[in-house]
């Protein structure tokens, strides 16, 4: 019984842990670092659904993420939307973006898809730069509600009347819940028909098609789910940062990390991106404090080269081989 539901129990425990961490009043830096790491768990997991299972490399993570971020900002500006609404709409629109790009380019070879995704971040950033309603190139400040409510329950109250003492803690918990949900989705896909079809596509797309796999349809489904989850990750950003400008939302680092973390952790199974993002996310957070944030891309680049040459199946693949 316990064996069988090990994963589900793990999810509940992780969620509880996220909640307890918000209740112990740590130094604010830890919430900030934890938020960044959890956000990377979500982003890498999202990337891996298409990139790891299906073998289609998406260089446009920053585009999907930035879209989510700016959809949330636009909704706040427009009518002061609540965070849950922002997440839903941002996810839906980022999923639509995935559908559009996928529909145009996924009929072609993987290279064209990769190139198209590379372009979308640039196109979207240029667009936002010129859209004053959401702050344009100068960026925008967001004032989160002082005492947000959800279904009539006070979520945050500085005076102690809510579940969380401050907004950062609540958003840390929310990001934890979203990250866990994404891992659950990725794992469900991996062990289902969609995951097996995507694997066949990755191994040999023409053979997959000839064996009855509707390749275009499966690739589109994967792109939509993957893009939507990236949009969700972006939607929490404005409330968390309270100030966003285009270079932050469309940061190239997202694109690099979202592909490097699964590759270093192991792309063939759900736990790979989780391991990769927790490990590299932690290294990066430590590097930010001890050295500088500029060093991060260098670190990730070096690790990526080392792993691709020494352990092409990532950390998880390396351990699984040792156990055989």
């Amino acid at each position: 019984m316990l064996q069988r539901y090990r994963f589900e129990i793990g999810c509940v425990v992780a969620l509880l842990a996220c909640f307890l961490i918000t209740q112990v009043e740590l130094n604010r830096f830890y919430y900030f670092a934890g938020f960044a790491i959890l956000q990377y768990v979500l982003i890498s997991t999202a990337w891996n659904i298409l990139g790891g299972y299906g073998g289609y490399i998406n260089f446009g993570t920053a585009g999907f993420l930035g879209l989510g971020t700016y959809v949330a900002i636009a909704m706040i500006q427009w009518y002061g939307a609540g965070i849950i609404e922002q997440i839903i709409v941002a996810g839906a629109l980022a999923g639509l973006l995935g559908l559009g790009i996928g529909y145009i380019t996924l009929r072609l070879k993987g290279v064209y898809f990769a190139i198209a995704t590379l372009a979308i971040a640039i196109v979207l950033e240029t667009f936002v730069n010129n859209w004053d309603y959401v702050g344009g190139a100068a960026g925008v400040s967001i004032l989160p509600p002082r005492t947000p409510e959800l279904l009539g329950i006070t979520i945050v109250d500085r005076k102690g009347g809510g579940i969380f003492y401050n907004n950062k803690e609540w958003l840390f918990f929310l990001m934890g819940a979203l990250a866990i949900a994404s891992v659950w989705i990725a794992r469900t896909i991996e062990f289902g028909k969609l995951g097996r079809g995507l694997n066949a596509i990755k191994d040999n797309e023409e053979a997959a098609e000839c064996m009855g796999v509707p390749t275009l349809k499966l690739k589109l489904i994967a792109t939509v789910i993957s893009g939507a989850l990236m949009g969700v990750a972006g939607a929490v950003f404005p409330s968390y940062l309270t100030f966003v400008d285009p270079p932050t939302a469309f940061n190239l680092e997202f694109a690099v990390n979202s592909l490097a973390m699964p590759m270093i952790g192991g792309t063939f199974t759900w736990i790979g991106p989780v391991v990769g993002s927790i490990l590299l996310g932690t290294v990066q957070q430590v590097a930010i404090v001890t050295i500088s944030s500029e060093i991060n891309l260098l670190i990730i680049g070096l690790l990526l080269v080392i792993f691709v040459t020494i352990a092409p199946h990532g950390i998880v693949g390396w351990f699984m081989k040792k156990n055989k």
Binding site: N199, A200, D203, N204, C210
Partner: peptide
Amino acid sequence: FQIPRPFHSM
């Protein structure tokens, strides 16, 4: 296929 194309990860 003339040149076998197995799903090599399976």
